[in-house]
Design a protein around this nucleic acid. Sequence first.
DNA 1: GTTTTTAGTTTATCACGGTAAACCTGTACT
DNA 2: AGTACAGGTTTACCGTGATAAACTAAAAAC
Lengths: 119, 119
Amino acid sequence: MEDLKLFDAEYKFMDIIWELEPINSTELTKVCRKKLGWKKSTTYTMIRKLSERGILKNENATVTVMVKREQVQKYESEVLLEDKFDGSLPIFLATFLQDKKLSKEEAKEIQKMIEEATK
Amino acid sequence: MEDLKLFDAEYKFMDIIWELEPINSTELTKVCRKKLGWKKSTTYTMIRKLSERGILKNENATVTVMVKREQVQKYESEVLLEDKFDGSLPIFLATFLQDKKLSKEEAKEIQKMIEEATK
DNA sequence: GTTTTTAGTTTATCACGGTAAACCTGTACT
DNA sequence: AGTACAGGTTTACCGTGATAAACTAAAAAC
């Protein structure tokens, strides 16, 4: 699979694209100038690098994504769990929930998801 | 609070220390040489940088940690959730659990933790 | 008393992520 | 014909994380 690891600047950039795609590339340079303070060439460099990796596509001056936000989120979660928590969701939760309180709604939502993921 | 963000090399290094601390610094250079392929000076550079940040301590040639593994794990989890999932545990879980199955034991464990974190 | 080892510090190199200047080509407008 | 702008590419600089060479000083071993 393509490498879904996004560096910080790449992620900030993708965040904009996920929100606005499909978007004209010149328009995108303007948004990035405003939101990230980037020069035009910086945006085009990013576009090129990310298309080389199959993360997005630039055709006829229109930028569209090849990889959905969720795929990246999932990938990042799995890497974190794998690297830092021995791949164990219970261990992750035990650590994460320390000193935290959940609302009844959140708890219910989660219980339901857990049930549905149980074989 | 001190900055708990650890870079990749720092984390690999801390992994060793969390396992072996308290450990003599010369001994540590040998372990790092073996497990990470590092030269002695690299290990000492790491020791110095991490002690400047209050992550560990080196006294009388004995290295001990000031920050437990769990604190870093928790910090990293919170940053990921905050940055990538809008700080929402349900959203995180919905994404993470896609195409995943949990064993009955895992599910039970998790249900219990959720209950206990509910006010 | 000389060599070896321990326990570091100072200083430097290198790779790479982040950012951009400079340049180029085509097209639309005047 | 000349200017303006869209839509890029080529090339490069800069900061910093990762790694280490070279040097030092004290203690231990011989």
